[in-house]
Amino acid sequence: MQNKMTARNVEVHYGDKMALDGINLDIPQHQILALIGASGCGKSTFLRCLNRMNDEISGCRVSGEIFLDDENIYAPKIDPVLVRARIGMVFQKPNPFPKSIFDNIAFGPRINRITESEAELRDIVHYALERVGMMDEVKDRLQESATGLSGGQQQRICIARALAIAPEVLLMDEPCSALDPIATTRIEELLEVLSSDYTIVIVTHSMHQAARISQRSAFFHLGELIEVGATDKIFTKPDDQRTENYITGRFG
């Protein structure tokens, strides 16, 4: 199995406080990797390291190396803007822009100047909507505001928005935590389909979700990566006592 991304000795500090301590993690291509652990364990912080979103938080320092294919994205000559264009991200709360559905999805292609022609832009938007299975739902109201959609639809618009610039990796930060069970199921089904083309890293609070959709899981505890392996194994025969405690619900 080929690795899409590799993290080596990643440490994160917020001011004087250490948030992540020496993380080493491989992210295999075209699979879903779930990051699990209690709140505040550092899993979201690690996710934000993967596309250099932590650069935007003042007082946050990241050290170590993270490779995308064979390139260290923390190397000095790397442009974080390009990293973020290559690695898409979907957030906890659906956050569509207060614009039309079309403009939301066209945002990435437009700012990144992917195409000059309106027809091609329309193709890209339609393709992204089809990938998230929303084309039929919204094809008559592409010019209506995206903020008027339901929470689940908004989140799928956000995924389509990320897909529109054809990222290589998709990072998802608890994408279903603000959604109802039906909308959650639809997103989970969508992720399974997408995983054949994209490398997906998902932070999740729900162990059931991790068990349902991911091939591999990584357990974080107090800023450390405790254990990583095939999801089946993590959930049935974990090596570490702390992982077992978490899985069996003794804490977290």
Partner: peptide
């Protein structure tokens, strides 16, 4: 969350501000 959304899509800060 809107800033994050724009930056996460590979917008520069200026694009995030103006767009």
């Amino acid at each position: 969350s809107l800033r994050d959304a724009a930056l996460g899509l590979g917008a520069t800060r200026a694009e995030m501000v103006t767009k």
